[in-house]
Amino acid sequence: MTGPTELGEFLRIRRSGLQPEDVGLQNYGVRRVPGLRREELAMLAGVSITYYTRLEQGLSSNASESVLEAITRALQLNEAERSHLMDLAKPTRTKRRSGSKPDKARAGTLRLIESMSSMPAVVLGRRSEVLAWNSLGHKLVGSHLDFESPHCPADRPNMTRMLFLDAHTRELYASWCEEATRAVSSLRLLAGRFDDDLDLISLVGELTVKSAEFAKLWAKHPVENCMSGLKYFQHPSVGSMELDFEVLISPDESGHRILMYTAEPDSPSAAALQLLQATAA
């Protein structure tokens, strides 16, 4: 899922998104293809056109960190995109990891989210699979599913799969297109970081085949480290809600995350969340 081909695709897409005037260059005449030319990007990065072309064509897999940093500056990448570029440029691994041993949330994490009685919380694995949720988290994002489903690997929900393939989840998000872009951007970042995860590769393949919308977004190679923001819900039980979300990442290598939602105090969304809490109780 990563490697020279993915690296080249990422570089081409980001190069095509920059115009000469964006980087202080004079634009002469009509261009056959949008964006910067390879020679312009190579000049800005201070590398030879031959070397840069080899990177885009997947013919060079050992770019130095200094070269990658120069390309990062030339492409005006943000920190998430820079991190993704570094992941894509690392040597291809030969060992592939599968989920032969089902993942599960730690006992301490379960106690933590259970103590958040007034805050929806969901524990996610590295592939956005739901490892656990508290009662309010379940009512918010998975009320049509069995509360115990995260504890059975065969039935475990996956937030990204649900977003694209589950009609109930699609109707839950009032700004579905924004949510879909955010989900694909996060998955792209994870795919570069965990390029040896066979289950993650399988998920991307499944969604690419089953959802034309996912395939279109994936091809654009969006990258974003979505740690906080605002989500717009149209919940079937309590109606419209605007909820802030925060993500806490486990400090180990598990890739586990806790997704938490809050509402602005004394707002209509806070009232709706309290009503949802009452139904959860």
Rank of each mutant, 00 (worst) to 15 (best):
G99L: 07
N134Q: 07
W133H: 07
A191H: 04
R182H: 11
P150R: 03
E178R: 09
L110Y: 04
E81P: 08
R93Y: 05
L198F: 09
D166A: 10
W133G: 01
L187D: 05
G142R: 03
F164M: 08
M86A: 09
S143F: 08
P120H: 10
R170K: 14
S115H: 08
D196A: 13
T94A: 08
T109A: 15
N78L: 10
L200I: 00
S202T: 12
L77V: 07
T169N: 11
K101S: 14
K95H: 12
L75M: 08
K104D: 08
D195T: 07
A167R: 14
R96K: 11
W176T: 09
I71T: 02
R188G: 04
P91C: 09
T181I: 07
V184E: 12
D103G: 06
L68C: 03
G99C: 02
T160P: 03
S117Q: 11
N134C: 04
F164V: 06
A74C: 04
R170P: 07
P153V: 01
V130G: 03
T72C: 15
K95Q: 12
K139G: 11
S83K: 13
N78A: 07
W133F: 06
K104Q: 14
R127T: 00
E79N: 09
S202Q: 12
D146M: 12
I71W: 08
A70T: 01
M159L: 15
F164N: 09
L88M: 06
L75P: 03
S175T: 13
E129R: 00
A89I: 01
R126S: 00
E148V: 06
R73T: 02
L112K: 06
I71A: 04
L110E: 12
V184H: 07
T94Q: 13
S186M: 12
L77D: 10
L140D: 03
I71V: 15
I113V: 13
L124G: 00
R82Q: 13
F147Y: 15
H168T: 14
K90F: 05
K90E: 13
Y173F: 15
E69H: 11
V130N: 03
T94P: 04
A167W: 12
D166M: 08
S98G: 15
T181V: 10
L136R: 09
A174R: 15
P91I: 10
M159S: 13
E148G: 03
L189Q: 13
D146A: 15
S185E: 14
R97C: 04
K101Y: 12
A167Q: 14
V123E: 05
A89T: 01
G142V: 02
G108N: 12
C177L: 13
A107F: 12
G137R: 05
H84L: 09
A107I: 14
S149L: 06
E148Y: 06
A180Q: 11
R161D: 04
D197I: 00
M86Q: 08
G137W: 04
S118W: 11
D166E: 15
S98N: 13
F147I: 06
L131H: 01
L187Q: 10
D103F: 02
A70R: 08
E114S: 06
A191K: 01
H138P: 02
A89K: 03
M119A: 08
H144F: 10
R97S: 08
I71Y: 07
S135G: 11
G142L: 07
